[in-house]
Design a protein around this nucleic acid. Structure first.
Length: 920
RNA sequence: GCAGAAAUGGUGGAAUGGUAGACACGAGGGACUUAAAAUCCCUUGGCCGUUGAGGCUGUGUGGGUUCGAGUCCCACUUUCUGUACCA
């Protein structure tokens, strides 16, 4: 009988659906295992063959774990809010939900074809009100919490209010936007409005006046991870800095825990490193410089406290609050002009220019160690968002300060012996200090490291500064001036932000007549009718960003229909966290930081049991497209085959890969493709037109998209699954190349015919050869799955099937074991075999086979024999021979004399079961 | 610039420090066929030689450790990914 994949796959998919095979429930009698894929944003283009790569890998693991007796949670859902649907809505006026739902349906039908073991009864969609009510709920909880640095966790803001009322800020150690000091009396004397403003300074979800990435083209602000090189990640539009009042999440308060938590995770080193860099811990000191002639301290942050004797000027960020305070009347026109210039530059322009610019404020600061007056400048090379937005400039030992000093002809004082600073600064943190002696502190002769420690100690003792750990991680900006997102459960009462009661959640996204901003520049929600509370207070018109809905979805899967809580205690206590998370590395600084933050916040609240959401994480590689090119001779309509193009002056043109088979162009199809190619002429080689190729991103515009549906239709889902795994290591990026798929398909057909020929009536034991082949396979596949090395597993299956066919094996036991082994990879064909073997339950629950080691025992062992490390011949000795016997056998071999060449071996090395090396 | 990963045939890729190139594609040759498809068999890193003969060389470059290195160490080159005036 022929292998008819279409019939088999349709039939068993139906069987799985009808019997709810993939539905799971809490079952405390079995250990749990949680396998999760990063849920997709359902784009209009649908899935291409690159998307399922990670899903297939995780599905194999999920099925494998299930066959090993685990209760496996393996859900799927959709990250349904996003810009493309909204942009489409703006163009067409169609509600983004309509597009989104139709895209979701398309995704679902594509996913279903591939035979995944998802429990669809747990599906979540971020745009579903029953889902986003818990996103809103978490936001309210964040608003009602502050981060207590002594307890090192989030605490209810009501506790902080009590402490303020009793003792003011005394002994309060809380993460804050800006430091505050007041007494209980002062607190109690404040108006409600003033108190609300103070509390905003401490809330974990707060409204803050901050520098934001404003993208005029998209009409919204963006988070740092949504901006790359001064352009928006989505769309590539320029982004500029703007001071705006926005909702923010105090992610920075969690920076130390987000950093230290990484050590407990089984993630790739490169991904952890990316997060470490993003969090950006740096140890240094904050030092106060008095401003000459004013009662004002200029506070700076530095990691190089040792270089304080080389400070020849100070620099403020243009946005620094110190700028207006330090600008003297004479310098004001110049400073204002400079600030104006900087403001009109986008972040991108700033980065591209890299021109040294700046202006003197007219004020001087006093070096606390030397008492010298040093000028204070303003320049855009200092960032307002990092440290205190002001630096002490040490041109001799910092390249940026050096460039600035050179440009404005400021003095450069070297502080490290032997450092030549005539051409460039000496930035390395090594060497012996010099020129560093003041009235109270002498660093000369110390190493840089010693000097840093000594200086820190000194400034703390003298009260001119303090040791400080700084983080690069910024608070997340949480407002988006867009329509298609979660509405904030926030209304404004006399200008004060208030939360809706949790009982009124979800606050549903209202209908609007257009998805554009209002005429007075309000976000689209400004158009919603009756967008106010029962009492008539206006509701927030911004929506939440994309990462809001994806930050806790893994928790909702545990208990998706719970109407009382995000996740019930019992469900959470059982499923705990994700054991294996598979997804793209591009989320390293976005979703994977926010999720960890969100989880830690809920952990502080006692809502979830685990401090980290994702224990093991695997980043699947990208599958790139493989585009084909034809070569048109310039000025003609004649196309020359790739091998001959060097003789002509040609222009490469991309062609649709649908017209190309194994790089050979279907010339007739090409003529029909476009009217201007209708009369195309071809110069062939060996009667064929051979196309060139290039590895590029898979996209419609490059005509290189391969649709998984087409593959499934032609070869079957099992072939697709095996082939995607066979392509190479899951973590690695690689181009898609349909050319190799025949090999995998051939393998499945061979397996099929092997099975078709198996003598199903007999239950004879396996022959020793059969047992060896089968047990070798069990061992290899088990190891490979544990190591996520699926490509070598597929090879192992091919080898085993070849061996069995050449043995003309007809053994039922062997087929039983192979069926169970291949079930995670090729579930449809395995299910078919399983039922033919007479089982009436699904292969999904068939026990994973164990290795019968006794079948693998060999009678003889083969040793390669090397002379001075070069292998010359091999010998076979009885298994269990001792070293001396192996040595003897090697020397006694007829081949040995030739290589010994009459010499005595100096040494003979025998590595058991490995090699004999004879050293001459 | 910084950080991380990588570099092996025509291609995708295998190799717990132990016979490099498994497995697959592609290519070449052959069998079956009126023919094609499908299927099966043989060859396939390079060089020299042979036709039951084998040898040399070979994992980006240069060093090192080791009886033995694709694998470990040092330096360099190139590529990919992330990040970037972070003081």
């Amino acid at each position: 009988m022929e292998y008819n994949h279409q019939d088999i796959e349709k039939r068993w998919q139906q069987y799985w659906r009808d019997n709810n095979i993939y539905k799971v429930d809490v079952d405390s009698s079995r250990p749990k295992f949680y396998v999760l894929d990063m849920f997709p944003y359902p784009s209009g283009a649908g899935l291409h063959v690159g998307h399922p790569l990670g899903y297939i890998a995780s599905d194999i693991y999920a099925r494998y774990k299930r066959q090993n007796g685990f209760n496996v949670l393996h859900p799927m859902g959709y990250d349904a809010y996003g810009l493309p649907a909204e942009q489409y809505a703006i163009q067409t006026g169609q509600h983004p939900e309509i597009t989104t739902v139709s895209n979701i349906n398309n995704y679902r039908s594509q996913l279903d074809m591939i035979g995944f073991s998802f429990d669809w009864s747990r599906e979540v969609r971020t745009c579903d009100p029953e889902y986003y009510r818990w996103t809103q709920w978490a936001f309210i909880r964040m608003f009602n919490s502050y981060y207590d640095l002594d307890a090192d966790k989030a605490m209810p803001i009501s506790g902080l209010v009590e402490r303020f009322a009793a003792n003011g800020t005394e002994r309060v150690n809380a993460a804050a936007t800006k430091p505050m000091r007041f007494t209980a009396a002062e607190w109690n004397a404040m108006s409600e409005r003033e108190q609300a403003d103070v509390l905003m300074n401490y809330r974990i979800a707060y409204r803050g006046e901050t520098m934001v990435n404003w993208c005029p083209a998209l009409g919204t602000v963006l988070a740092n991870d949504e901006v790359s090189e001064g352009l928006s990640v989505r769309g590539g539009h320029p982004v500029e800095q703007k001071l705006m009042s926005q909702w923010c999440l105090r992610v920075s308060a969690y920076a130390p825990r987000l950093l230290s938590g990484l050590d407990t995770l089984n993630w790739s080193e490169s991904l952890k490193e990316t997060q470490r860099n993003w969090i950006g811990r740096s140890e240094g000191a904050e030092i106060n410089f008095k401003v000459a002639g004013q009662d004002l301290n200029l506070e700076i942050f530095t990691t190089r406290a040792d270089t304080i004797f080389g400070v020849t000027f100070m620099v403020l960020a243009p946005e620094s609050k110190y700028v207006p305070l330090l600008t003297t009347p004479e310098q004001k026109p110049l400073v204002d002009a400079y600030l104006d210039e900087v403001k009109h530059k986008t972040e991108r322009e700033r980065q591209i220019e890299k021109r040294v610019s700046g202006v003197f404020t007219g004020s001087y600061a006093v070096n606390p160690l030397t008492g010298q007056n040093i000028p204070v400048w303003v320049s855009d090379y200092v960032l307002a968002g990092y440290g205190t937005g002001a630096v002490m400039a040490v041109p001799a030992h910092d390249s940026r300060d050096y460039a600035f000093a050179r440009h404005f002809d400021l003095p450069i004082v070297p502080l490290i012996e032997g450092a030549d600073v005539s051409e460039q600064s000496f930035d390395a943190k090594e060497g012996i200090m010099m020129n560093s002696k003041g009235p109270k502190l002498d660093l000369n002769g110390l190493t840089v490291k010693e000097a840093i420690a000594r200086t820190k100690q000194f400034i703390e003792a003298e009260g001119i500064g303090r040791v400080k750990v700084n983080y690069r991680l910024r608070d997340a900006i949480f407002s988006r001036q867009r329509y298609w997102g979660e509405p904030f459960p926030v209304y404004y009462k006399d200008g004060m932000a208030c939360m809706l009661p949790e009982s009124e959640l979800p606050l549903q996204l209202p209908a609007v007549d257009s998805y554009l901003p209002t005429e007075d520049g309000q976000p689209p929600l400004g158009r919603a009718k009756d967008w106010k509370t029962k009492e008539g207070y206006p509701i927030e018109v911004c929506t939440m960003p994309g990462f809001a809905g994806s930050s806790a979805y893994y928790l909702r899967y545990m208990d998706p229909h719970n109407s009382e809580a995000l996740v019930g205690k019992e469900a959470n206590a059982y499923w705990r966290n994700v054991d294996l998370y598979v997804g793209g590395a591009e989320h390293a600084t976005g979703h994977l930081i926010y999720s960890r933050f969100w989880n830690k916040f809920l952990y502080d609240l006692g809502v979830v049991a685990e401090p980290e959401p994702f224990r093991k994480l695997v980043n699947q590689g990208m599958i790139q497209g493989r585009s084909n090119y034809v070569y048109r001779i310039k000025g003609t309509n004649t196309f020359v085959s790739k091998g001959l193009k060097k003789d002509y002056d040609t222009t490469p043109i991309r062609v649709d890969i649908g017209m190309v088979d194994n790089d050979v162009l279907d010339t007739e199809a090409f003529r029909k493709w476009r009217p201007d190619f209708a009369d195309a002429e071809f110069i062939l080689e060996n009667g064929k037109y051979v196309c060139g190729y290039a590895v590029e991103k898979m996209s419609k515009s490059m005509f290189n998209v391969v649709n998984p549906n087409d593959i499934v239709e032609r070869y079957g889902a099992d072939t697709l699954r095996l082939y995607e795994m066979f392509l190479g290591p899951v973590e690695q990026s690689k181009p898609w190349d349909t050319n190799g798929i025949d090999g995998v398909n051939r393998f499945l057909r061979k397996l099929w015919s092997l099975f078709d020929n198996a003598d199903l009536a007999s239950d004879a034991p396996m022959t020793p050869q059969e047992a060896k082949t089968v047990n070798k396979l069990v061992k290899k596949v088990t190891q490979d799955i544990e190591n996520f090395s699926y490509n070598t597993s597929v090879s192992a299956f091919m080898i085993a099937v070849n061996e069995l066919s050449s043995m003309k094996s007809r053994n039922r036991q062997a087929m039983d074991i192979i069926t169970r082994l291949i079930a995670p990879f090729a579930p449809h064909i395995a299910e078919e075999f399983w039922h033919r073997l007479g089982h009436d339950t699904s292969v999904v629950d068939a026990a994973w086979p164990e290795v019968d080691e006794s079948a693998l025992v060999e009678d003889t062992v083969k040793y390669p024999v090397s002379f001075n490390g070069k292998t010359r011949f091999s010998i076979e000795v009885p298994a269990g021979s001792d070293k001396a016997a192996v040595e003897q056998a090697a020397l006694a071999d007829p081949n040995a004399a030739k290589w010994l060449d009459g010499k005595q071996p100096k040494k003979i090395i025998v590595v058991p079961n490995r090699i004999v090396n004879i050293v001459l």
